[in-house]
């Protein structure tokens, strides 16, 4: 196993980065579609999801083929095992972007309600997490991956606050219930994307350091 396998791994990384690039574009378009009330951008997000699904299938197959044919060890094994987990995370991010885009199409005809800026902040923070998680993968940057994981708490805080605000709005103005319901689902999708970016960052740490950082409460209990 030498140069040929290295080429195969390089091709796999390129394909993963192509998928990540596409997903990042969907995240950014989803964010803009809400901010700009753009149905065109929402439609573009929905259309891109098909391409992401196709890439998921081809990357899955490539990983299985390499595991079966190359029987890799050490960092090669970690890369393939983690790619098999990163790919579905990216695919799910694509699905969440599609959900956001669909909700945007529902609410785009109406004016922003009170928490629009917070929702935009949520979108920006989440987009940043996805982008930096993949940057950590590309650059082999463990510190950046750790920073992404830490940022998940900030996104959760925004999400909780937005949800509370939305509930308050619905209580105060029953005519806003339909829009607010769409927005609650929309922000939940942003929060899930941040979770998925966190999962990707955890996989990047496993690739780089061979350390599983998931579920720290279980590790504390064991120790």
């Amino acid at each position: 196993m030498g140069r040929h396998f290295d080429n195969e791994l390089r091709d796999l990384k390129f394909s993963l980065l192509a998928m990540a690039g596409l997903v990042e574009e969907m995240v950014e378009l989803a964010r803009q579609s809400f901010t700009e009330r753009s149905d065109a951008k929402a439609d573009r997000v929905i259309a891109l999801d098909h391409n992401v699904d196709e890439l998921e299938l081809s990357l899955d197959q490539a990983c299985i083929d390499l595991l079966a044919l190359r029987a890799p060890f050490a960092s090669d094994l970690r890369l393939l095992a983690s790619t098999l987990k990163i790919v579905p995370e990216l695919e799910r991010i694509g699905d969440h972007c599609t959900n956001i885009a669909k909700r945007v199409k529902f609410i785009s005809a109406y004016p922003h309600i009170l928490t629009a800026q917070q929702i935009e902040a949520l979108g920006e923070a989440t987009h940043s997490m996805v982008k930096r998680a993949m940057d950590a993968f590309v650059n082999g940057d463990a510190e950046l991956a750790k920073a992404v994981i830490a940022d998940d708490d900030l996104v959760d805080e925004i999400y909780v606050q937005v949800s509370k605000d939305m509930l308050q709005i619905m209580l105060q103005d029953p005519s806003a219930i339909e829009r607010a319901s769409h927005l609650i689902i929309l922000v939940k999708n942003w929060e899930r994307i941040a979770d998925q970016a966190t999962n990707i960052a955890e996989e990047v740490l496993f690739i780089l350091e061979g350390v599983n950082v998931k579920h720290p409460y279980l590790q504390k209990r064991e120790s």
């Binding site: 196993m1 060890f73 050490a74 350091e209």
Partner: peptide, 17 residues
């Protein structure tokens, strides 16, 4: 050793490099 060896030389050997 086969998933996360400590030494680079081990890594290179077991991964065929």
């Amino acid at each position: 050793l086969f998933t996360n060896p400590r030494e680079r030389m081990t890594e290179d050997y077991i991964s065929g490099r």
